[in-house]
Simulated assay, not measured.
Amino acid sequence: MSQQRQIVASALATALALGLGSASAHAEDKAKEKCYGIVKAGQNDCSNLSGTHSCAGQAKTDMDVNEWKYVAKGTCKELKGLTADEAKAKAKK
């Protein structure tokens, strides 16, 4: 196989893999939900409700109602977690 064909085949394989990977990630997102108040310090998935940080891994305390983590859809309540609306209401108190 010529070098040019190898490059084209490699580029095509990469494009296909990226397309399939994003579809898989999208399907995975639908199977998960944000669960507030269950996070250990440093293990949050992204920004918090109060806006004091905007990155994963920046939770300062365990079980902070402002912090969230993705969990399998339908398991948040089993983990004694809160929805975003419940967390906002509890944070106001």
Rank of each mutant, 00 (worst) to 15 (best):
H53S: 01
S10W: 08
A13F: 09
C76G: 04
H26Q: 11
K73A: 12
A41L: 09
W68N: 01
V39H: 03
G74W: 03
T83Y: 01
L16V: 12
V65H: 00
A15T: 11
V39P: 00
D29G: 08
A31R: 10
S10C: 10
D62A: 04
A23F: 09
T52Y: 06
Q6Y: 14
N66G: 00
K32W: 07
I38V: 15
A13C: 09
E78Q: 09
E67K: 04
T14Q: 13
N44P: 05
S22D: 06
S22C: 13
S47W: 09
N44C: 13
K77W: 02
T83G: 06
S2P: 12
A72D: 07
S54C: 05
G81A: 03
E28V: 11
V39C: 03
T52R: 08
K88D: 00
L16E: 10
K92D: 04
G81E: 02
A25T: 13
S10K: 14
G51V: 03
A89I: 02
H53E: 07
G51C: 05
S2A: 13
A23L: 15
E33M: 08
Q58D: 10
L12Y: 14
V65G: 00
H53D: 09
Y36E: 03
I38R: 07
A17C: 13
N48F: 00
S10E: 10
T83W: 02
L49C: 07
G37I: 06
D29H: 11
G74K: 03
K69W: 00
S10A: 15
D64W: 06
D85M: 00
D29V: 09
K88Q: 02
